[in-house]
Design a binder for these strands. Structure first.
Lengths: 122, 122
DNA sequence: CAGGATCCGTCCGGATACTG
DNA sequence: CAGTATCCGGACGGATCCTG
């Protein structure tokens, strides 16, 4: 059984938030789902670099934490859809804010990492 | 030498942002530094659950990515301070937005995890 | 297609000791 | 105090196979 090392500090917003979305994939997943990509297979294709296994784990956590709602359609082949809950939707403004910040920081990061790379050749 | 598995997509804001702050500690660290806690020792004490080793790594990454600036005072005992750069400061609104979201989600998460815990006893 | 189980190499991170 | 190096157990994640 999994025992959390550091208990969540419910009085600290950052602690709560990091428990729920403190992984590099969560924001991407919420973003894609908000754009209408709802099936695991499609999410794997949409998100650059994620694997089926890792996505599965992230989806389960997001569902457990009440940000996603899972619907199973008993068809052949099986179809499953994940939709944002109210809590999940309340995160969207943050997702787009982070996205925007990233766009603004993009060129700077590029420069930093490139000069960093050439430094290693000296 | 470390080879990144998935290259950063500089056209995707979330990809850029996650490269820089996609770890559960980064936001906390920036938050504490913005509040005036600037020395590694003090940060370890201020941030619940972080260890010296992990903090060191996070600080180096934040510095490398241009969000923090390191100042060394050659005193005895040695004193080091980390300060937010302009880019680092530009993240503060997001930090407080995430903090606020976490505060709002706190009670709901608590309920979810507690019922989840009792479920396991059935 | 969804997703769980298994095998197995890799990496992360705690503990500790050492240097400046 | 700040930072690095080493040891080492445990967690993570890729590949693969199997079921409904």
């Amino acid at each position: 059984m999994y025992q959390r090392k550091i208990p969540i500090d419910y009085d600290c917003g950052l602690s709560v938030a990091m428990e729920v979305v403190g992984s590099k994939w969560k924001f991407c997943i919420l973003d894609e789902i908000s754009k209408g990509i709802k099936r695991p297979k499609d999410l794997v294709n949409a998100i650059n670099g994620i694997t089926k296994r890792v996505l599965q784990k992230q989806l389960r956590e997001l569902e457990l934490h009440g940000l996603l709602e899972k619907t199973i359609y008993t068809e052949i082949p099986l179809r499953v859809e994940y939709n944002l809950t109210v809590s999940g939707k309340s995160l969207l403004p943050l997702v787009s804010a982070i996205d925007q910040w990233g766009m603004g920081f993009s060129s700077r990061l590029k420069t930093i990492l490139e000069t960093e790379a050439t430094m290693n050749y000296l």
